[in-house]
Design a protein around this nucleic acid. Sequence first.
DNA 1: TGGTTAATTGGTAAAATAGCCAAGAAGTAT
DNA 2: ATACTTCTTGGCTATTTTACCAATTAACCA
Lengths: 106, 106
Amino acid sequence: MDIQTRARFSARARVIKALSHPSRLFIVDELSRGERCVCELTELIGADTSTVSKHLSILRNAGIIRDDKRGTQVFYQLTMPCVLRFLDCVETIMQENAQAQMSLMG
Amino acid sequence: MDIQTRARFSARARVIKALSHPSRLFIVDELSRGERCVCELTELIGADTSTVSKHLSILRNAGIIRDDKRGTQVFYQLTMPCVLRFLDCVETIMQENAQAQMSLMG
DNA sequence: TGGTTAATTGGTAAAATAGCCAAGAAGTAT
DNA sequence: ATACTTCTTGGCTATTTTACCAATTAACCA
């Protein structure tokens, strides 16, 4: 792999890596139904506020979500709805995997 | 997040995590043009055979690719072409990010 | 001003990931 | 049988990721 090709795939991997965590996928799913503040997401996820804040910054740095400060709160919203279609594909993969498992068991 | 919800998003994250590495994305891209043996992928990526083999097993365990042994060689092929559409979305995100960067610079 | 809420940032320890080398397994050929 | 090729697995180290706590910043209110 030459330098440019490696750089191209590394950039893609950085975006995907931002999505490769249960809490971050949960955030994306939740934001697909509308904007949420950090406090709401923290409550739903059930982790420390600082943990959720860091997850949000990872998604923001990847360009997947956007923040909007209003008063003391910060609201986040999806900027890339196409990731939802991606998640549909992931769901398909999981169903196929489950079926393959079932058929192995007879 | 209750146990079931967490389990659901963890399962999704496992699939996505399998895609979150430059070499593994390269493999998916390469396989989108047809099956390849481990030796071909190793040559293209330029890493140790054992490293590539481990990347392949990660993708296989996630249900994204399938192996087919023929003689001493093992050929891999995509089982989930829908991941390619996912990668299109990633490309879109990257372009949007690049544009945002440009506009910040004026 | 002082107090309160909301969120981010720095620090740290535990866990997961990645890469190479060495060794082993499986097939083919001489 | 021996040698050779192809691939996988185990071992090890280095790097990255994750989560919590503590401290800080920022906005609002009494």
